[in-house]
Simulated assay, not measured.
Amino acid sequence: MAKKSTLDTSITSYIGPKHWLSWIGMGIAYLISFLPWSMLQTFGALVGRALYSVSPRRRKICDVNFKICFPEMTGMERKQLTKEHFESMGKGLLETFASWFQNKNKFASRIRFEGEDVIKRVLEKGRGCVLISGHFSSLDICGSQVPRILDVHPIYKLQRNPVMNWVMERQRKILFSKTIERRNMREVLKSLKQNKAVWYAVDQDYGRPDSVFAPFYGRECATIAHIGRIAKMTNAPVVLYDYGRTKNGYKLIFTEVENFPTGNDVENATIMNKLMEQAIEPKKEQYFWAHRRFKTQPIEGDSSPY
């Protein structure tokens, strides 16, 4: 089924038998969301280990990415990091359920912000700001906490499952004053004009037409080009949003990106990729290594490493 927003669609469109398994899954997710934090972490790690056992394709993608990004790693080290990655993603899956179905204040005591002064300073300029981040396993639960200090309008990508979209879009509408589907540039510009923050995750391969090639861990990869263009067009400050899971909760850090944008798309992409590397290093296992980051090749027609 084609990806399509469900915000203007009634739930009655998704109650037929072909959707029953999806609704059962959502019901289970709702019940899981009530678990206390420590149990979410323990159960999530178990879910991740199960996913590791049944996901040979994703294990291979991780291994290829590790060979490219960390060529000094041995086979055993790559395998161990892959296992840790799957455990982290299992935790993230359950944290996503909690972010959808529980009040954002449930885990407020486990959240630590750094850089609130940065947010205040950039918004005083009156041009909004562009948050840039990577994809880490705690994306949803950390993202649900950002509105506590900042009116942020996240850019999102629709999923293939329409039931998941129906739930996701409505739950995020509760958390955020506005969400923007990633192709809707008009709404991005409108939000910045209103002095709001627009949040992009900038580290996925969206294909050749929307990208330039810039190094990521020393390998040229397709990187979205329009962040620098938006910043240049609107004079909106760009802020790195770095987040992740800690031993007892989560840390969210905001840092203004200096001397950005430059006048060159490749230079802008290179800066962003370097920032992503710096964010990944302290918490490698939490990054979305199962994504085919190097899928699109610099020379069209060259085979994918996956």
Score class of each variant (00 low, 15 high):
A2G: 05
T6V: 10
T9K: 11
I11M: 11
Y14R: 06
I15R: 13
K18L: 07
W20K: 04
L21R: 14
L21N: 10
S22H: 05
S22D: 12
G25P: 07
M26A: 15
L31A: 15
S33A: 15
W37K: 02
L40K: 03
F43V: 15
F43E: 09
L46A: 08
R49A: 12
S53R: 14
F66C: 12
F70G: 05
K79S: 14
K79D: 15
K79M: 13
Q80K: 13
T82S: 09
K83G: 13
F86K: 11
F86W: 13
G92P: 09
G92T: 08
E95L: 01
W100E: 06
Q102K: 15
S109I: 01
R110Y: 05
D117L: 01
D117K: 07
R121H: 11
K125F: 02
G128W: 01
I132D: 01
I132P: 03
G134L: 09
F136P: 04
C142N: 10
V146R: 00
I149S: 08
Y156T: 09
L158G: 11
Q159N: 15
P162W: 00
P162G: 00
V163W: 02
M164L: 08
M164C: 03
M164H: 06
N165T: 04
N165G: 04
N165S: 04
W166D: 01
M168A: 12
R170T: 08
L175A: 12
T179C: 14
R182M: 14
M185Q: 12
A197D: 09
A201H: 07
Q204Y: 00
D205Q: 07
Y206L: 13
Y206F: 14
A214S: 05
T223P: 01
I224Y: 08
A225M: 11
I230H: 11
M233P: 01
N235L: 02
N235M: 03
Y241T: 10
D242R: 14
G244L: 10
R245S: 08
Y250E: 05
E258K: 15
N259Q: 04
P261F: 07
N264Q: 05
E267T: 08
E267V: 05
N268T: 11
N268M: 13
T270C: 02
I280Y: 05
I280N: 07
E285I: 07
E285V: 07
F288D: 03
W289K: 02
F294Q: 10
F294S: 11
P298I: 11
P298F: 07
E300Q: 12
D302G: 05
D302H: 12
S303G: 06
S304A: 14
Y306R: 02
Y306D: 09
